[in-house]
């Protein structure tokens, strides 16, 4: 664990100075600020940020994560030639990536709200849910990125797969859901939809966010079913567990692969 912390420390220093990470934070900051300038009140800004966070964050986490690991290949070898365990190394690497990205998200989206603390009506709870979901998605998709780049030696293939994963989660999956809904329109679909939603971290994040807004009312009976489910401690626990699993599973698989692989 000590080893992991040391590696983490230096990774943080490296990535915090990475121009892409700084650019990422800057873009988020500019967009959030622009939304405030255009839209005004905090609630609408949070709602507008929803898609940004759901789409942009996983894309950045996936692409940056895979490229980062490919580029660090040789240095990782050098570090592994030091008296450092592989588990510690993996934890340090992942933390060293996921933490700066999360921080960039929190800073980029959070600061414009912080500037306005008190002056406008800011739905604090919704903002927290938004930021929490964003961080969770960062953790999940950096873990998936690590798994991909450890699984595929060829960086072009790995990067391509990362983009496919993103496309799948962000677009194709929802298209399939729509197809399922259309085909099985005669059956009660609420429970299957609930399960389908739990299976995609992006959808889960979106639904949790939407239910926190009053948009939930638009979602009619389906929304009510979701709200009832997520309104109970059990439902919320299951949703949380699903999100945690989405991070833990690729992370554990990645760590296993990292432990066993040859460099």
């Amino acid at each position: 664990m000590r080893g992991a912390r040391k590696i983490l420390g230096y990774q943080l220093r490296d990535i915090a100075r990475n121009r892409w990470v700084i650019g990422y934070a800057a873009i988020l900051l500019l967009l959030t600020e622009a939304l405030f300038q255009l839209g005004g009140d905090g609630g609408r800004v949070v709602l507008s940020l929803l898609n940004l966070v759901l789409i942009f964050v996983p894309l950045v986490a996936l692409s940056f994560g895979t490229l980062y690991l490919y580029n660090a290949r040789e240095f990782i070898e050098l570090l592994l030639a030091q008296p450092v365990g592989r588990g510690a190394m993996f934890a340090g690497l992942w933390g060293g990536l996921a933490l700066p990205l999360s921080t960039a998200l929190l800073a980029g989206v959070g600061l414009p709200f912080l500037f306005r603390a008190g002056s406008t009506t800011i739905p604090a709870r919704s903002l927290l849910v938004l930021l929490g979901t964003g961080v969770m998605l960062t953790l999940t998709f950096t873990a998936i990125a690590f798994l991909i780049s450890l699984r595929f030696e060829d960086r072009a293939r790995g990067f391509g797969l990362a983009l496919l994963v993103w496309l799948g989660c962000a677009v194709v999956y929802d298209g399939l859901v729509l197809l399922v809904v259309t085909i099985f329109s005669r059956w009660p679909l609420e429970t299957p939809l609930l399960v389908l939603t739990l299976l995609n971290p992006l959808d889960l994040g979106r639904v949790v966010l939407l239910l926190d807004f009053d948009v939930a009312a638009l979602m009619g009976y389906t929304g009510a079913v979701f709200q009832r489910f997520l309104g109970t401690a059990l439902g919320l626990g299951i949703a949380g567990l699903a999100l945690v699993l989405w991070t833990a599973l690729p992370l554990l698989l990645g760590a296993r692969r990292f432990r066993r692989r040859d460099f």
Binding site: G3, D14, E74, L79, Q82
Partner: peptide, 25 residues
């Protein structure tokens, strides 16, 4: 160990890399 090709984190300084390895040891 001195590997065939030297790659270090781009944004760290040489001193930081040395400190990092020293720290790990």
């Amino acid at each position: 160990y001195m590997p065939q090709a030297a790659h270090f984190p781009e944004n760290l300084s040489g001193a930081e890399v040395l400190a990092m390895i020293r720290d790990l040891r």
